[in-house]
Structure formats: structure tokens, C-alpha cells
Design a protein around this nucleic acid. Structure first.
Length: 715
DNA sequence: CTAGTCACTTTTTTT
DNA sequence: AAGTGACTAG
């Protein structure tokens, strides 16, 4: 028997042992959210609930597996049968079991981002939109707009006016492309990520029997990271659980960082209204971070608007101030960070340290430095393993085994044949699909590779082959292509293909293999064998929910964090703030923030001076120590000049400690300066009050300006 | 219709 | 520096 009272604090206990009906758990960063879910699982099972009537939705499959494993450990028994995974993977599995009812009798093929873009490109050229028009949006942008419109469930023109005003003149063309995209997918049994959710919802809505079957099976539902669900996902939860079902939603509105893909915080805010008799539990004690780290993270949030006000506190005493490092450039940043990593790993072990960044490419320089010195690392986020061209090539072959209608894969596969482009590929594919034997024969005579491919595909189709056998057959076919197309680095790519075979060996069916690669892609391997415990490199998004003893944040400079794009819209700017909050709250003991004094422009030798991120500039200097790289090398602690610090009255430190006890924050708090309008620069965020009558304002697209009070209008 | 050349912009984040 | 799309010769 587990002593839940002893293992959990009172709020956690209340959540974990909630007997019936909906619960909303507002869980601040580091407040033992995972622990609560794990104990909830254990408690349910101890109450005699069958493990297979529990459904656990998380943001990655890995997170679900880990929670289940931990629950098994404390229970001392297997949780076999419990369903856990992402909304997308769950939706896919249900759809696949009901493929016929869902309207996909011939199965369905999942597409990744690149596949979707390919379709958009084809649809666009087919429609002839934006021909010769250089400012017509690119496929990437088009897909962004289309998925955003679907995820937010808003018409295209409305998305355009809020997200990309300069493209509003193309609304009707984009609309047409969106329609063409939908019918293309439908025609070829292709599904994108959004389709999974919408089709799943539709399936449940339109088929009472399926819905009831799911409801009877899944009597206890838990949804992690609820603040990052979008509208369909919320409706899916509602459909699965009913109005008073046993659903537990766990989340933190301060950590919502997926609005860009349609996540809607109102889901978590409105949860108590959508469900009946909702029990709301708040987890406010932070077990992760030391006080100085918590002070800094609380202060980042000071300027943010959060609806569920939480007062995070910790009992962890001691700990050192977070440190702001100012290397001379992003180049030297890599070396300084490597030094730091060595030092920190001695203290916390190889797995105790993580380096976080805003975008995948920001770690490239660092990765070179780490490899040179021989520090092993694992990288999460950024480019995925299965996004590499050669992997996609082979996967296209494999997809043709299961879905003959997959034109995208036909084009990709046949494109390797000399003299065959998209058009010919489509003609060949049409001939094959429609069973036009004489035409196929003609093409086969002309192109040796085609007849080889068709022969192999047929062999695999007839035997209903496993992914491993498919690869055994297809790789010999592909290897010559690989060598021909990548003469300089095919050995490296070949290693990737071996890794693919490795992964394939864990799967019995082609469908699950292909789907899993799409739904839960492996991070790209840096070098074959990976150690269990290693330094983590990760985007902030992929670091969500994790923690390390020491966290180093790099590239905290204007235009990189927050990303330049987010400066245009206050909502996105605020999301970047929460993103930084998520990043900093990953640290248990030590937090380092690096803001190089100059950054090189996209891998060239040009270096631009860089300004620390506005979020850093907002912070009171007493919350961190500043270390600057000397021209002669080495880091020197920078003394604070009293003259340079902001007047004591404005100090967020005093504001922070006070705002926690007093509910109303003072309007003069520097992080609450808000927004203003300027005749020329437009709307901007006030970053700093420069006495007596000036403000430092951040104008999207123009950057930081110091403006005299009289020239701005307060908003 | 393909394949090669050229000029232009672009760099978030993820299921 | 890379990827995209326009343009063009065969």
C-alpha cells in the first residue's frame, strides 16, 4: 500500500485522490505536476480501476511512457493496457481501427510537414496562382496560414488580417489553394496532422456506437499540458468524457507556448464552465528551483497576464544568483559555454546539464565546439531525423507499399529516374493506379529503375511485409541513387539509413512504423552510439516538462529570443515571454543566461552588435550577476554601478515580493509599463522608463527607440 | 517536359 | 548558405 498522504502535499493529494468527476489542476512550474499524475495513476489502480480503462494524453509519447513507468515502479505492478500518448497518436489509432467508417477504406497515409508543402506547391502551380508575382506567399507561408486557419477555426481572411496583414490582398487565391489542398489530400487518402484531430472528432460525433464504445472503455481520462490544447482537442476531451466524466486536466496558463499552432488558453480558463462540478486544485509549492532562480522566473512573469494567479513558493533555501554571461560574440559564446559545461558536469554529472535555445539552428556553432572537445550530447528539437532527404526518399518507397494512391511518394520516388520530372511521374503513377497495363509496360521498358521498383513493391505488397523486410528489399534499390545524388556525403547518410533499419526492426506492420515516424519522430542522431547520460541540447519547446540541475540559455539577444518575427504582434511577444519563463524554470540549482555582445549574420563573417533580449533588460539587476568576457579572454564579474541601476522605487525585486503578498500590482511597476503608440513607428512595447520624461520603447520592425514622453500616446 | 542556371529571400517553435 | 521559384535551352 502506498501512503499517498505522506508522499504528496495536500494539494497534490487532493488532486491525485479525487474520486469522481472533472478536476482541473493548475500546476505551476516545478510544482510536482508529473508526480501528481503518476500518483493519480497509482491511486486509480489501487482503487481497483482496470489499467486499460485509463487514458493518458501527453504532449509526447515519451512523456506518457515515463509517467506510466514511474507509476508502475511505485505500484510494484504492471500498468499494462493503459493507453497513453498524444492526441494525434490516439486519434490515429482510433481512426485506423475504424478506417471504413471514417471514409478511408483503403487506409490512410500520414504526411509530415514537407509532404504537405509539396502538395501546396503542386496545387499552387496547378491553379497558376501567383505566377510571376514575387510577393505571392511561398508554400511554407501558405501552409502556415492554412493550418492556422484550421487550428484556430477561423476563415482564411480573418487569419490573414490578424497574422499577416500584408497578404490580405491574396485572400481569395489562398482560399482556393486551401480548397485544392483539402481535395488533393482526400483524393489520395493523405492525412495531415490537423486531419487526424478533425476526423477523429467527426467520427465520434457521427457514430454514436463508436463514441459510446470509447466512453465505456476509457472511464478515466487525464490530459497533461492542457494549456497547449487547441479547440478541437478540447472538444475531443469533452466528447470522450462527457459533461461530468472522470477527466483530469493538468496545466499552467503561464506556460502556454503553442498559441502559434492554435493552442488556446481559454480551454483551460473555461474548463470549469465546460464541465460540470469541476474541482479546481492549485499546486503552488515549487520543489524544483532554488529561491534565486524562482525570484528571477517570477519576475519574468511579472509583466505577463495570467488568468489563474499563482503564488509560487519554495522551501529550498540557499542557491546562487542566476548569471548573465556576456561573451564577446556568438562564436566565443560557444567556447565559454563549453567551459561552463565541463565545470558543471563535474558537479552534476553528464546528464545534469542542459543548453537551451529558441530555434534549432542556434546550437550549430556549439555542436561543433562540443564535438571538437569530445563532449557527448543529445539534441532535441530542430530538424528531425526523418526530415532528411535520403530518409524521406526511402520512406516514400515504403509508403507506396501501403498506399498506391500516394502521388506525393510516386513523384518523389520516380523523380530519381533520369528524364522523369513531376509531370511524367504523375503520368506513370496514374497508369499504375488505374491498372493500365500496356502503358505501364511501355514506361517500364523505357525506365529500368521503374520496372525494378514496381517488381519490388509488388513483392512486398503480396507478402504484407514487415518494415524490416521492406527495407531489406528497398535499400539495395536505393543505394545506387544515394551514391549518385550525394557523392560527397553518402557514407553519413548511409549511417542514417542503418539507423532507420534499426528503428524498423521494432515494428511489425508498415502502417504503425510509418505513422510513428510521423507522429513521434526521433531526434536526429549526432553520431551513431549515444550514451545514456549526456548533456542535453534542446529547443525550449522540446524542453517543456523537463528539468536539469544546471541550465544554460544561449543567444538571449534581440531578434533571436524573442525571435524577430514575434516582435510584430504583442500576443506573440507575450508568448515569447512565457517561453523564456518555461526555459528558466527548467533549472533546479543553477541558471546561466548568455547574451553575446555580437552575433554573426547567418553563417557569414559579418558580425552585428547585439543587444540583450528585452526580457533581460526588463529584469532588475539585483536578480542576477553579470559576467562579461574580457578582450583578453576569460570572464570577469561586472560590478554594478549604482548610477546605472534603475531608481530603487522601480525595483521589481521590491515589486515582486510585494506583489506576492498584495493582490494588486502597482501600475508603476516597470514590467507593467504596457504599450504605446508613436506616429511613425506605430504600436510599441514600453521597455523602460528613463527619467525624467523619456521611455525606451520596442517598436516591432524598428527595434528599440528612446522617445520623449510627448511624442507617444499611451495605450 | 526536364534539367540546369540565376536571382532573390530567408531563419521560430511542433504534432 | 540554402532553399525557392523563375527562366531557358534542348
Amino acid at each position: 500500500m502506498i501512503d499517498f498522504k505522506k508522499e504528496l502535499n495536500s494539494a497534490q493529494y487532493e488532486a491525485a485522490t479525487h474520486p469522481q468527476g472533472p478536476v482541473l489542476v493548475i500546476a505551476g512550474a516545478g510544482s510536482g505536476k508529473t508526480r501528481t499524475i503518476v500518483y493519480r495513476l497509482a491511486w486509480l489502480v489501487e482503487q481497483g480501476i482496470a489499467p486499460d480503462s485509463i487514458l493518458l494524453m501527453t504532449f509526447t509519447r515519451k512523456a506518457a511512457q515515463e509517467m506510466l513507468m514511474r507509476a508502475e515502479t511505485i505500484l510494484g505492478r504492471s500498468l499494462h493496457g493503459t493507453s497513453g500518448g498524444t492526441f494525434h497518436s490516439f486519434a490515429y489509432s482510433v481512426l485506423r481501427q475504424n478506417a471504413l467508417t471514417a471514409g478511408y477504406p483503403n487506409g490512410m497515409t500520414l504526411m509530415d510537414r514537407g509532404d504537405c508543402e509539396d502538395i501546396i506547391r503542386d496545387v499552387r502551380t496547378e491553379l497558376g496562382h501567383g505566377k510571376k508575382d514575387r510577393s505571392f506567399p511561398k508554400k511554407n507561408t501558405l501552409l502556415d496560414i492554412i493550418t492556422k486557419s484550421r487550428n484556430k477555426e477561423l476563415p482564411i481572411d480573418q487569419v490573414l488580417s490578424t497574422e499577416a496583414f500584408h497578404l490580405t490582398c491574396y485572400a481569395s487565391e489562398i482560399e482556393e489553394i486551401a480548397v485544392g489542398y483539402e481535395s488533393y489530400k482526400r483524393q489520395h487518402s493523405l492525412l495531415d496532422y490537423d486531419d487526424l484531430l478533425f476526423l477523429f472528432e467527426k467520427l465520434m460525433r457521427e457514430n454514436d456506437d463508436i463514441r459510446e464504445q470509447l466512453r465505456t472503455r476509457y472511464r478515466f481520462i487525464m490530459v497533461d499540458e492542457y494549456q497547449d490544447t487547441n479547440l478541437v482537442q478540447a472538444r475531443i476531451v469533452r466528447l470522450l468524457a462527457g459533461r461530468n466524466g472522470n477527466v483530469m486536466a493538468v496545466g499552467d496558463d503561464a506556460q502556454s507556448i503553442y498559441a502559434f499552432r492554435g493552442a488556446d488558453v481559454t480551454n483551460i480558463l473555461k474548463f470549469p464552465e465546460i464541465f460540470e462540478d469541476v474541482k479546481v486544485v492549485r499546486l503552488e509549492q515549487n520543489y524544483r528551483s532554488t529561491q534565486p532562480v524562482l525570484d528571477l522566473t517570477n519576475s519574468i512573469l511579472d509583466g505577463a497576464e495570467t488568468k489563474f494567479d499563482k503564488k509560487l513558493f519554495t522551501e529550498r533555501s540557499g542557491g546562487s544568483l542566476p548569471k548573465l554571461l556576456i561573451p564577446l560574440s556568438d562564436y566565443t559564446q560557444s567556447s565559454r559555454v563549453v567551459d561552463k559545461v565541463i565545470e558543471l558536469q563535474k558537479k552534476y554529472g553528464p546528464g545534469g546539464v542542459a543548453i537551451l535555445f529558441r530555434a534549432g539552428y542556434q546550437s550549430y556553432g556549439l555542436e561543433v565546439a562540443l564535438k571538437r572537445i569530445g563532449i557527448e550530447y543529445r539534441k532535441y528539437g530542430g530538424l528531425k531525423f526523418n526530415e532528411a532527404a535520403h530518409i524521406k526518399d526511402v520512406l516514400a518507397f515504403m509508403r507506396l507499399v501501403t498506399n498506391p494512391a500516394d502521388i506525393i511518394s510516386w513523384q518523389r520516388s520516380l523523380g530519381h529516374i533520369k528524364g522523369v520530372g513531376p509531370k511524367t511521374a504523375k503520368r506513370i503513377a496514374d497508369a499504375v493506379i488505374s491498372g493500365n497495363k500496356s502503358a505501364v509496360d511501355k514506361f517500364c521498358k523505357k525506365y529500368q529503375l521503374l520496372s525494378d521498383l514496381l517488381r519490388d513493391l509488388d513483392g512486398l505488397r503480396n507478402k504484407n511485409s514487415s518494415p524490416s523486410t521492406a527495407l531489406e528489399v528497398l535499400l539495395p534499390l536505393y543505394t545506387p541513387i544515394l551514391v549518385a545524388e550525394y557523392p560527397d556525403d553518402y557514407p553519413r547518410r548511409q549511417a542514417g539509413l542503418e539507423q532507420l533499419s534499426q528503428i524498423a526492426s521494432n515494428y511489425d506492420t508498415m502502417e504503425t512504423f510509418l505513422a510513428d515516424l510521423c507522429l513521434d519522430p526521433e531526434p536526429v542522431a549526432n553520431d551513431g552510439n549515444e550514451p545514456e547520460e549526456a548533456l542535453t541540447l534542446s529547443t525550449v519547446h522540446s524542453a517543456k516538462g523537463l528539468e536539469w540541475n544546471a541550465v544554460i540559455l544561449i543567444d538571449l539577444v534581440e531578434d533571436r529570443f524573442p525571435s524577430r518575427k514575434s516582435m510584430q504582434k504583442p500576443a506573440e511577444f507575450e508568448e515569447e515571454r512565457r517561453l523564456l519563463y518555461v526555459a528558466c524554470t527548467r533549472a533546479c540549482d543553477e541558471l546561466y543566461m548568455s547574451a553575446p555582445a555580437s552575433v554573426s549574420r547567418q553563417n557569414t563573417d559579418f558580425r552585428d552588435p547585439a543587444i540583450p533580449s528585452p526580457f533581460i533588460r526588463e529584469l532588475n539587476e539585483e536578480l542576477y550577476e553579470q559576467w562579461q568576457e574580457a578582450y583578453s579572454g576569460g570572464m570577469a564579474k561586472k560590478k554594478r554601478f549604482p548610477a546605472k541601476t534603475k531608481p530603487k522605487v522601480d525595483s521589481p525585486l521590491s515589486a515582486t515580493s510585494e506583489s506576492e503578498s498584495s493582490p494588486k500590482k502597482k501600475p508603476t511597476s516597470p514590467t507593467k509599463l504596457g504599450f504605446c503608440r508613436h506616429k511613425i513607428f506605430g504600436r510599441g512595447k514600453i521597455v523602460e522608463h528613463i527619467s525624467p520624461n523619456k521611455y525606451r520603447v520596442n517598436f516591432p520592425g524598428f527595434g528599440l527607440k528612446v522617445i520623449v514622453e510627448d511624442y507617444i500616446e499611451m495605450l
